[in-house]
Amino acid sequence: MGVKRVLVTGGAGYIGSHTVLELVEAGFSVVVVDSLVNSSPESLKRVGEITGKAEHIDFIELDLVDYAKLESEVFKKYEFVSCIHFAGLKAVGESVQQPLRYYENNLTGTLHVLELLGKYNCKSFVFSSSATVYGGVEEMPVTEEAPLSATNPYGRTKLFIEEFLRDLYKSDPEWKIIILRYFNPVGAHPSGRIGEDPTGIPNNLMPYIAQVAVGRREHLAIFGNDYPTHDGTGVRDYIHVVDLAKGHVAALQKLESSDVGCIPVNLGTGKGISVLDLVKAFSKAAGFDLPYKFADRRAGDVAELYSDPAFAKSFLGWEAKLGVEEMCESTWTWQSNNKNGYRDA
């Protein structure tokens, strides 16, 4: 087959769009399937403009829960070498309020994709998992062997899908599967043209900081300042989305070159950054101090969580290159150029 075509579900979203850009730059052609529930087609239009390779990106608006449409509009029309599966609902708080919606959407959608990939003989799969699956880990840094558990329905959908994949591989060793467990993706493409654009109130720290910086929100609430960390605020492993996207390209290239089985890989920096560290770094990037207030700890939050990235380096030949300064500067460039995200377009 001449064209190396990759199916990217959820490819119009934040991590998806950055990954589509890196895939196209690496010589792949991409078919994006996205329901646009929490994303914008504008992101893919801009990826085409940034790369100058819009002809290598096909977009189909579709919900993965619709099996018949997924088969007729995607699998009967294209032949794929691999699939990267991002699509899914992802707000932790909303998942607690609407667990059945999350289970139906995330689990059913994934089952449909896997069934059709098997039916059309494309058994190469990269899954967008999350450090959420390391529910109650106490030893840092977190390795891939750490015990798995989840504290909310969103995290459980990631955990269940990982179990689907392990069972699928056991039943049919022709499958080649890499499970990427992300830590905390932040930042934006250096062009400032694509970035994180959540609908409604952001669930994650960095887009909330960015919206405070451009005046969309009054101040940042920092949940907890009495943790046993260097400044009392929670510590996390923040990874630049461009590094993360390149990790997906490395995973695809690994699947092309060898039989991998079904393997989980942490994508993180291995460095812990506190909430206050991030606020200070962002204030420096923006050139002014951001307003914040301390609030009570949130239930379920841990003091610190950061990865051991050693396996990603040895297995994929990948490591994070960009630091907290680049994370904050690129986010500020994106948000100040697009105050209301893609809606400005």
Rank of each mutant, 00 (worst) to 15 (best):
F288E: 14
K280G: 12
G195M: 06
R216H: 14
T331E: 08
G16C: 04
M206P: 12
N340P: 03
M327R: 02
T51E: 03
G93W: 07
W318I: 10
M206V: 14
L64W: 05
K158V: 08
R217I: 14
I60W: 01
R101M: 06
E256A: 14
G109Y: 10
G52S: 09
A320F: 07
K119A: 09
L316D: 04
R236H: 08
F125C: 10
D172G: 07
E138G: 15
G48S: 12
D296L: 03
I201M: 15
W318L: 08
T331R: 10
T51M: 03
H56E: 14
I60E: 07
N225C: 12
E71L: 05
T19H: 01
V214Q: 02
A213G: 01
L7Q: 12
W318V: 06
C122Q: 04
A245D: 07
K119E: 07
L159D: 08
Y67S: 04
L114F: 07
E49Y: 13
H189F: 09
V24S: 10
T331S: 07
M327H: 09
K246P: 02
N266V: 11
E79Y: 00
P141C: 11
F164L: 14
E139Q: 11
I273C: 00
L100I: 14
N38A: 15
H230R: 14
D289C: 08
L107K: 01
V30E: 02
I179A: 12
A312Q: 03
K176L: 01
G272M: 06
V137G: 10
Y306N: 03
T132G: 14
A12M: 11
V249Y: 07
C83P: 04
V33F: 08
D63V: 04
S72N: 00
G118H: 15
E196W: 13
I84E: 04
P41V: 06
R343S: 11
H85Q: 13
G341P: 11
R298Y: 09
H18Q: 03
N105G: 06
F59R: 10
D197K: 07
I194M: 07
I209D: 05
A345P: 15
P153F: 05
P147I: 06
C262K: 06
Y14C: 05
G187E: 04
L159N: 00
G187L: 08
G234D: 12
N184H: 01
V242S: 13
K246Y: 01
G224T: 02
V242Y: 01
D243V: 06
E42G: 12
F223E: 00
E22P: 07
M1W: 11
C83M: 03
D344Y: 06
A303K: 04
L114R: 09
V30H: 01
H56W: 09
Y154P: 03
F164P: 13
G192W: 10
P291E: 10
I84C: 09
I273G: 00
L21N: 09
